[in-house]
Design a protein around this nucleic acid. Structure first.
Lengths: 214, 214
DNA sequence: CGAAACGTTGATCGTCATCAATGACGGTGG
DNA sequence: CCACCGTCATTGATGACGATCAACGTTTCG
């Protein structure tokens, strides 16, 4: 799933209207909004477009944490924990418009804006829950299960998410992803259509196949 | 590692002194403080003792998210996200003393106590970062790496954490954990001592072996 | 009564077969 | 040229099963 958060978007749009502290910035597709190991100074909130958030391990492999869009917050974790490095990289998968929130403004919002406070706690809590759940089932179940679950959750793949991205989300290679998708085509659970994309063909069978792991 | 948070502990102890809203409760070893799928009504903060937090998957297998002690918060994620179910179970691994914070008090603290607010955001952000990082390396690297990393982080295993718990933290069986530990004994990286416990024997070799994965 | 003998239990390990996932590499088709 | 797939060898991780061993309580017998 591509995460969004309308409540945060509305709040930041209101703040941007009221003050001159928050400005808009545009990134091109492929650009990094923040980069792992850089020093955190700014929080961003996505206005429009899609990003992927990923960790690059010391062996060079990437693990994708999530895909985000309107209303999602970037870089708040590092500022809240007073880290001197971003722990992940955020890359624009499309043209991207973001609200730029300098550290001082972020601190001020944290101290003075009760709505902002509640929202950011809610965002962090949600993310923590989702990350924990995913971590759990990806460890516990075999690959096929995870792929099925993702297909079920995503419904169909957004055109801006490449197979490489999806493979990195699963922590596997594209070759392995293709193999697994092929297996599902053979079982007539999905079909592959023209735009390099999969489509659910037989939803009940998909669910049944997921449940076979229980 | 067993997580602790002295700042939270100090804050809650001060609050407990000042008001009658926060009381102490004791759990026996093996008891559940909160249970997955139960309705969330209460937040707990650990005063003393050790817990494990784990998710039970639909196939019956457990995945341990973390081990916690003094100052760690329990159940706040569910209240902040307004979920009607706990998404994990918290079990006492020792006799456990906790501060009991009813939902109304928790809400009140969230609205009125600025220090509490900052701390809880910091806690959530830290947890999110740690969970993300762990999720990443457990997906990317083979089992041996994860085991080495855990041995490095834990130093030595707390007597209250069983091998079963540790295996569930890694998402594997005890048999597999023992096999991997045996491999490390053969390589003279660790030794197994009387109390069913491992001990780092050759730290430089341990680090070198970790770095061979890069 | 007390010490030796016995049986039970649970944890661990050796071994081997099997399954899951990857890597390599060449071929094919747009 | 690049993305994808068939194929096959290999590695990673698990499951099954029997053997071993220590811990512990109970029985037996001198």
């Amino acid at each position: 799933m591509i995460k969004t958060n309308l409540k945060v978007l509305q709040l930041i749009e209101k703040i941007a209207r009221d003050t001159a502290n928050v400005i808009l910035k545009t990134f091109k597709k492929g650009e990094y909004i923040v980069q792992q190991n850089e020093k955190p100074k700014i929080v961003y909130i996505i206005k429009k477009g899609i990003t992927k958030c990923f960790i690059t391990e010391e062996n060079g492999k990437d693990y994708v944490l999530d895909f985000s869009s309107a209303g999602e917050i970037i870089g708040e974790v590092e500022l809240l924990t007073h880290k001197d490095q971003y722990f992940s990289t955020i890359e624009a998968l499309t043209i991207l418009e973001v609200y730029v929130i300098p550290k001082v403004v972020f601190d001020q919002l944290n101290n003075e804006d009760n709505d902002f406070n509640m929202l950011i706690k809610e965002v962090l809590a949600h993310r923590l829950m989702n990350t924990s759940k995913r971590s759990s089932y990806q460890q516990i179940y075999p690959l096929l299960y995870s792929v099925l679950k993702i297909i079920y959750d995503f419904g169909q793949l957004d055109e801006h998410i490449s197979k490489q991205d999806l493979a990195n989300y699963l922590g596997i290679t594209v070759r392995s992803l293709n193999r697994t998708l092929q297996e599902l085509v053979d079982k007539k659970i999905i079909t592959i259509n023209e735009v390099d994309n999969f489509e659910i063909k037989n939803a009940p069978l998909l669910i049944k196949t997921i449940e076979q792991f229980y």
